[in-house]
Nucleic acid binder design. Structure first.
Lengths: 193, 193
DNA sequence: CCTTGTTGGCATTGACTGATTACAACTTAA
DNA sequence: TTAAGTTGTAATCAGTCAATGCCAACAAGG
């Protein structure tokens, strides 16, 4: 067990494990030991590899932010984007759909945003938000449109966080809001254990 | 010091202190001792009064949710609401402005939403979200309109959380997004220490 | 073979945290 | 005044957590 491996390779492995772990309970709620268990390595090793739990979280958070931004960027580069054409906006929605399919990234984002009481995390959060906003604006759309897209994304994050999709079978007001927000991106099996 | 006081009175005092404390670092990031210090009482007293840190947080979270809902409800009851009249929507925006003036409530809400890995907290979050959505829908507006109002609120929460208002003097993309989102509700002095 | 560097776990630790218990101080009623 | 209930604290405990130090296993180069 514990097969030997180049450090870089192991690092990526632990980073992915950390993303899964932090996606669950955020910065304060996740222990380095939980990350280690998820990665199948020892807890001290995780700490030594990244220096500090905070450093590790920041790396995970920053990576998540970049991934979101890349998704948008890809859409904009795939074909010329005309903010007045509905189908172009649909392409953007579809991109978000893909993100929902792997919710860990969005959850990490959410947890990073809400951990703003830690100065360094808040700073990363601001940079991340600013980049995404700028990317959207670069389509030539209005500030209001860009803001609305982001707002929609934030609602989506929150609904994911409170696990609204799991409640869909119950129907009710929350169900309506959830389907309305997720559109056709609905839950890749709401993990009904 | 530690003037004696009826339990109910003290309870409200500690509850208010807990709101301030939890608004900072959320459920996992806030210790019962921090709440106690904020309230000026001993840590064991806080625990015994509410049974559990989780119970205390739930009570604070639920209260915050109710306060939001009441703000909306008040607007709807103050005068007949016509979802097709812009000024009626403006009244709703103004109500939100008041909420921003006392950010602790919104921050608690944000932290409650993102602590969804704790089942009981997630459940409260879903109920809270459902109630607010239902309240909005009762105006006779479209589901899309109600969803957009909530989405806008979530973006506002996130921007508060990453302390975007403090960055306003820097200008830049984030500044635009912040002013566009907060409207005239801008920060009651971004606490420039 | 031997030496040097890398990969990783084990044991430990000091600080912290939520919770319990015991007790002090004050208040009210008889 | 005394007995019972209420309000609050001090002391402490068992558990957890991030971080440090030391050492084993393995690889690569001479």
């Amino acid at each position: 067990m514990a097969t030997r491996m180049k450090a870089d390779e192991r690092r990526q492995l632990v980073l992915a494990a950390a993303r899964r772990a932090f996606a669950g309970a955020g910065f304060h709620g996740t222990t380095t030991d939980a990350v280690a268990k998820e990665a199948g390595v020892s807890q001290p090793y995780v700490v030594r590899m990244f220096g500090t739990k905070l450093d590790l979280f920041i790396e995970v958070f920053e990576e998540a932010g970049e991934r979101i931004q890349c998704v948008f960027q890809d859409v904009l580069e795939a074909a010329p984007f005309d903010p007045e054409r509905d189908e172009d906006w649909d392409r953007l929605s579809a991109a978000y759909t893909d993100l929902v399919a792997d919710p860990d990234v969005l959850q990490v984002l959410m947890h990073g945003f809400s951990a703003g009481s830690v100065d360094e995390i808040a700073a990363v959060g601001r940079r991340c938000m600013a980049r995404i906003y700028a990317t959207l604006l670069s389509t030539g759309c209005t500030p209001g449109q860009a803001r609305d897209v982001i707002a929609h994304g934030m609602l989506l994050n929150v609904l994911l966080s409170v696990r609204a999709p799991e409640d869909l079978p119950h129907g009710g007001a929350l169900g309506e809001l959830t389907t309305s927000t997720f559109g056709d991106a609905l839950p890749a099996t709401p993990s009904l254990t």
